[in-house]
């Protein structure tokens, strides 16, 4: 390869590691200078292209995916329910379809949900009250006032219903709040599993799980949520 061949390659691909190119650059000072100038241009181009990415881009992508997932689930569930209902109607067992037995308790499911979604604990957004209330509209719920710094908020399916998955800043770390409409519990319950501790709180339309690290004062967050959360219908 002569100098023109080498420069032709470097002009298009300055980071070329082709053995012929590297060998030539060791022997030809002029081409080595040319290679340096092309690398400098690349650095400048990289700097220019490296624009800031909107803060909430990742959040919006994940939210869109969750909503699509939920829509897909509802569609499938609607199809299977319609099919099942027609079968059940024929045999007169409609009531039986409404009884759902779960192998795990709601508390176990809530703890597992926190463990299975570590991404939620890494997001560092600052979700505004209006955005939270937009999220809660489908569940006929509303927060009358701010409940503290919310770093993540997204609809999530827990067992057969969709609810809201929030992550708040606690005193010692992140605290997950799962608002679970349609998931009823009889009484307030403490949750404990390895390094996680939580509260399962009955509400009018379902329940709320508040889960954080050991020693996190969850009752303070519980009080703020109880005070702010209302039903809109």
């Amino acid at each position: 390869m002569n100098c023109i061949d080498i420069r032709r390659i470097l002009a298009a691909t300055p980071a070329s590691r082709e053995p012929d190119v590297l060998r030539h650059l060791q022997q030809c000072q002029s081409c080595a200078r040319y290679a340096e100038s092309e690398k400098a241009l690349s650095t400048h181009i990289d700097k220019l292209l490296n624009i800031a990415v909107p803060d909430r881009l990742t959040f919006r992508i994940m939210l869109q995916q969750r909503l699509a997932e939920e829509k897909r689930f509802r569609h499938r569930r609607g199809y299977w329910q319609a099919l099942a209902a027609s079968v059940v109607l024929t045999v007169g067992l409609v009531a039986g379809m409404l009884v759902v037995n779960h192998p795990y308790s709601l508390g176990e499911v809530a703890l597992a949900h926190v463990r299975d979604e570590p991404m939620a604990l890494q997001v560092e957004d600052n979700i505004q009250l209006s955005q939270l209330n937009n999220l809660l509209v489908p569940y006929n719920l509303k927060l009358q006032q701010a409940i503290g710094r919310v770093a993540f908020a997204m609809p999530c399916r827990i067992r057969q219903y969709t609810g809201a998955h929030l992550v708040m800043k606690g005193e010692y770390g992140k605290v997950t709040v799962l608002i679970m409409p349609g998931e009823y519990v009889m009484a307030r319950k403490m949750l404990q599993e390895r390094e996680l501790q939580g509260l399962l709180i009955p509400t009018d339309g379902g329940s709320i799980a508040i889960i954080g690290q050991a020693h996190e004062p969850l009752t303070a967050i519980e009080a703020r949520i109880s005070q702010a959360l209302i039903h809109t219908v």
Binding site: R8, A11, Y34, S37, H44, L48, L49
Partner: peptide
């Protein structure tokens, strides 16, 4: 690629004393 004039290329490292990012961006 064959029609390009390599002889007319300047090999000075660009941007060593600062460059107007705006103009560069506009070129891109």
């Amino acid at each position: 690629m064959e029609d390009m004039d390599f002889e007319s290329q300047h090999f000075a490292a660009p941007g060593s004393d600062g460059v107007a990012e705006m103009e560069f961006a506009q070129t891109l």
